[in-house]
């Protein structure tokens, strides 16, 4: 078996912080470097790892750019960041966007394009898992655009309408 040591650099975004780390490993044994500390580790099997001599149970799911880590009974969500730490934060939501807060069906629109709306005014009603919820205007302004119609199925975060 090849005895070569692989080295990888990874960048993560956790909340507002960017974290860079390096991992050196061969045959499941190696060391992890982050913020000036080094942690030796040894993978025991598909769901157990020894880090600095202590044993842990873990699971990891990578989905698109989000990694979900389950470690000793707690779940954490990390985002993979771009190579460069200076890269802009992922798409910043525009102030006037009204987004679906959960996946579901758009039931009704209570405003039309061109209407003046006030902050916190209900602009649409959604249904998700048999429950109604209201979408509200983030600020006072005019409705510039409505991108869906009643009956449409929305993904979480979909921009339903834009307020000036």
């Amino acid at each position: 078996m090849a005895e070569f040591m692989s080295t990888r650099e990874l960048h993560w975004r956790a909340g507002k912080e960017d974290v860079s780390c390096r991992i050196d490993e061969s045959q499941g044994v190696g060391s992890f470097h982050m913020s000036g500390t080094t942690l030796p580790f040894r993978i025991l099997d598909s769901s157990h790892i020894e880090i600095s001599g202590k044993r842990h149970r873990f699971y990891v799911v990578h989905r698109h750019d989000v990694s979900t880590v389950w470690l000793d009974g707690r779940t954490y969500y990390l985002k993979r960041a771009k190579r460069s730490i200076d890269a802009p934060a992922s798409e910043v939501a525009r102030g006037g966007d009204i987004r679906a807060l959960m996946p579901g069906k758009l039931l009704r629109l209570t405003v039309n394009v061109g209407d003046e709306v006030s902050e916190k005014q209900t602009v649409a009603i959604m249904e998700s898992m048999k429950m109604e919820s209201s979408l509200v205007a983030p600020r006072t302004g005019r409705v510039l655009e409505i991108r869906f119609k009643p009956g449409d199925v929305l993904e979480m975060g979909a921009v339903v309408m834009v307020v000036e």
Binding site: R8, L10, W12, A14, V19, C21, I23, E25, F32, M34, S35, T37, L39, F41, I43, S46, S47, I49, I51, H56, F58, Y59, V60, V61, H62, R63, H64, S67, V69, L71, Y76, L78, R80
Partner: peptide, 24 residues
């Protein structure tokens, strides 16, 4: 988030497919 979490997230490396579990 403890450093151990970043370690565990990093051992699988960059996943080649859109989604995968390290454990598989």
């Amino acid at each position: 988030i403890p450093a151990d979490v970043f370690l565990v997230a990093s051992i699988g490396g960059a996943p080649s497919s859109k989604q995968a579990t390290f454990n598989d």
